[in-house]
Design a protein around this nucleic acid. Structure first.
Lengths: 109, 109
DNA sequence: ATCTTTCCCATAGGTAGACTACTGGAAAGG
DNA sequence: CCTTTCCAGTAGTCTACCTATGGGAAAGAT
């Protein structure tokens, strides 16, 4: 029915915020969290998420280590770095600023 | 300082809404309108706008005809078609739905 | 015992749409 | 004249999302 994509440019913010809320978590858990919190409006594809996590590792926003999930499976746990937390703050501020601007265009006073 | 880009996926909606509000208008006027209404937060680059207008012509969302601007210059005036108006309605609904979903992830209750 | 589902990771290739940089020209104002 | 403003467009790049695919291990079902 409706689209369930992640709007381009918002995935980093969503993942960073999820890790901020969840603490160290694996990719699958992050995707579940975003889907659940958005009432299934947003669906994070694996082919989007894992490459994004790789890029975030390179940027230094997250660190990763292998571990065991609650279900006894091999999983890579990601956690926010200080740089990742700063990035999250900045992305949220930019997001709100731009969204308010769009609303002003869409709904002229 | 802050970014002034158009978030990917929102340009069609912004242009359609501008034409809906302005009536027939040329590209330059559309860009000015979006910049003004957004308090200069959004800046539509010419290299983004004109290709987008071409795509919108092909999709049948707008029609165009050449004319003279208020400043006596040769200008191409675009106007919404019925399909364009339907597209606008749909894009605004999707936008609001997705934005609300993002907010639920970013600001858990 | 085997089958299916769920859980978890990752890459390759395609595509859309924004960007920069550039070309081109006519009108107005200095 | 020269510069600025107004107006249109294309070429090429890049980001980042997508689909499609390929693993593989644990748990539950038959």
């Amino acid at each position: 029915m409706g689209k369930m994509e992640i709007p381009p440019g918002t995935l980093y913010m969503l993942v960073l915020r999820s890790l901020d809320e969840l603490g160290p978590m694996h990719g699958y858990g992050i995707a579940q969290y975003i889907e659940r919190m958005s009432s299934a409006v947003l669906a994070v594809e694996e082919g989007s998420l894992y490459p994004a996590l790789q890029r975030m590792l390179i940027k230094g926003w997250v660190k990763a280590e292998w571990g065991l999930s609650e279900n006894n499976r091999r999983a890579r746990y990601y956690r926010l770095t200080a740089a990742g937390r700063r990035q999250l703050t900045e992305e949220i501020a930019d997001f709100q600023r731009v969204m308010e601007a769009i609303v002003r265009v869409i709904q002229p006073a």
